[in-house]
Design a protein around this nucleic acid. Structure first.
Lengths: 116, 116
DNA sequence: CTGGATCCGATTTGATACTG
DNA sequence: CAGTATCAAATCGGATCCAG
């Protein structure tokens, strides 16, 4: 597998390409929440623990720019913006589930419990 | 899914936990190469394009510390060190394949070809 | 041959202030 | 309510040097 360029960045393999699209700390949590319903900005902000305003905004912009989510602005005051998942975003859901299940398996192996 | 601590770091979900173990730019390429044979440090270095000495060393250390690979040192001069995959490392291979296939699918959708 | 340590620039992220 | 801009802190990664 040779290197390839996308959006001015050099990639070394398909795994790296995929993780650049839907990886990082926040993109999967966002897609996961949008998988079966439309959500407003404020809802996402409340629903995703620890995410900062800046990170939520930037990650939503990237997901939108690459076609994983749609953004619908209602011209009202105060502003209302709804985010929804696209076909492309939906196709990522099974991958997220696979990684999530693997993570749960690893957590057992490492004796990680959710009570600290 | 509540937060949990592991190795002094706070995690928000199982996906994040999994990707901290086998994610990043280099861990999957390393595991992938070790999946069906033992390799020496220099072999890995030659075989993984672009990886630097520092990154290869640090990623091998982390994978070893968390039980994904074994490190065998031969007491000879000059030094000879062999890296091999463990059971835990092998269990990551199907996940890597899944992500890889998804990456290839995305690359088609984005019209990424490997000739730049 | 393998690998540790250090320096330093680049990138990422959090906090904060401001806007329509 | 949703979003942008700015600055500072933290993290990451590359280059380089030294060592057994």
């Amino acid at each position: 597998m040779p290197d390839f360029l996308f959006d001015k960045k050099l990639y070394y393999n398909p795994v790296e390409f995929a993780m650049d699209r839907i990886g990082g700390t926040w993109k999967m949590p966002i897609l996961w929440r949008l998988k079966d319903r439309v959500m407003r900005y404020g809802e996402l902000k409340k629903d995703i623990p620890h995410i900062t305003h800046k990170m939520l905004t930037s990650q939503l912009r990237e997901l939108e720019a690459e076609g994983f989510i749609d953004r619908k602005v209602y011209p009202v005051v105060p502003p209302k913006v709804e985010y929804s998942i696209t076909e492309r975003g939906l196709s990522a859901i099974p991958i997220i589930e696979t990684i999530r299940n693997y993570g749960l398996q690893l957590m057992e192996e490492f004796n990680v419990n959710e009570n600290h």
